[in-house]
Design a protein around this nucleic acid. Sequence first.
DNA 1: CTGCTTTTT
DNA 2: ATTGTAAAAAGCAGA
Length: 527
Amino acid sequence: MRSLSELLEDRSIAKLGHDLKNAWLALRAAGIELAGASYDVMLASFLLDPGRRSHALEVLATEHLNAALTTVADLIGKGKSARSPSDVAVGVMAASSCANAWAVLGLRDRFTSQPGATAVGPLLERIEVPLIGVLADMEWRGIRIDSDRLRDLSKRFGAELRDIEQSIFDAAGTDFNLNSTQQLRQILFDKLQLPVIKRTKTGPSTDAGVLIQLADLGFDVPRLLLDYRELSKLKSTYVDVLPGNVNPDTGRIHTSFNQTGAATGRLSSSNPNLQNIPVRTPRGELIRQCFVPAEGCSFVVADYSQIELRVLAHLSQDPAFIEAFRQGGDIHSQTAAIIFDVAPDQVTPDMRARAKTINFATIYGQGPFSLARQLGISQEEAKEFIKLYFARFAGVRRFLDETVQNARRLGYVETLFGRRRYIPELKDLNYNIRAFGERTAMNSPMQGSAADLIKIAMVNLAAAMKQGGLKSAMLLQVHDELVLEATHQEVDRVVEITRHEMQQAAELSVPLVADVGVGPNWLEAKA
DNA sequence: CTGCTTTTT
DNA sequence: ATTGTAAAAAGCAGA
């Protein structure tokens, strides 16, 4: 019989690590299927305090059990000099594994008797632990890409890049490293004497906002550079890298979904990150088109509509907001009609755009200064606008104020389902840190509740598809969106089940709406 | 390794 | 008195 680590090398989808999901995948690679999980120390730690730096077993064991565990890195080394786990003597590995098992049991006892344990229990049992297997299945299945098309894009982007590069050198009158902000500063602000718009800690900023302003003043180098930056980012981060992420055994890309990555309760994705695939620009769309379903399948893409604003409406119980969502239709237009006190059909595109901006500003706890910048109005006007907004949505103002007050008193905020996030910054003596804490306190319940809702939907959807004996499956989660692969036969059923499970994840004071689309690639499936 | 910049929701 | 929008991952330059 072959060792587990040999099997892992065969099927690198199963990554060595100490979380339960990776163990699940490793066992599957070895031909052993777990029936389910009952507890996960890492997830328990995450729910008890999502803000802490590490939830690694050895760190938790040191802290709570005063025990020093041997890590995988201790045994095989790190980075390029790392040896294969199969080189470690069986006895050594066994001893380490036993110590780990002991630590898991000790930590579980510790955690279940801890003060915050009552709040954590249901989240762990009903959401996070059931989600482990769902995510393991998604990672295991992976997603297909059109590598030929990406290589073609790489050539095209490369040629374009060389042209732009030459134009910039001509316009600047000298060659330099376009990727070096230091050299760029010298060209822009010393040689060409362009005005400094904004500073970073280390010198004049050259970020996109600055370049746009300089381009609007009629300067060529910043205009060309914006194009260069977009092209270069997309090529080096996505177009050139994604084909190398294809697993040779499966022909698909297997990302990792991290369940303890974001303090709000959102998932994160890495190796590669498939939650930040471009879409905004025409070139971004070309990249999204390269994500394609298996032969004989279509993508089904389901998006929650305005989930964070709906959560806000529910949590705040603001009557105007709730009524707007119950009416249905475009929420930003509805908001505009309420703020500007006009009939819904009298809302102009500009009014809608302003309403949309301030709706987002509210979700993020944004102040008048940045709202003014975004809307292109004075700070005074922005203050008036915010005043008007909160006069119409007094319930939202009250809710946000109470949330911050309670957070100061209790030290934490909570989502709809009791997921906590501690915010020590609220007590900091530094004004900036405190203001940051206040924004965190306002945003986390909304972002976190939305994360809870889609996780519940995912667990229920996986169960429903299994129940229905469907071959189709979830592939990706992108915060408010699910990407599924459905056989042509099953497409209609998958669309309906997905919509149903997302919309019925919980009963709120406003309807939950999911928009579902079908298509031959990720771009075109998005409704 | 840190800072800057960019990508997504 | 003082900044300035929440949450991530990743590539590149330069020390």
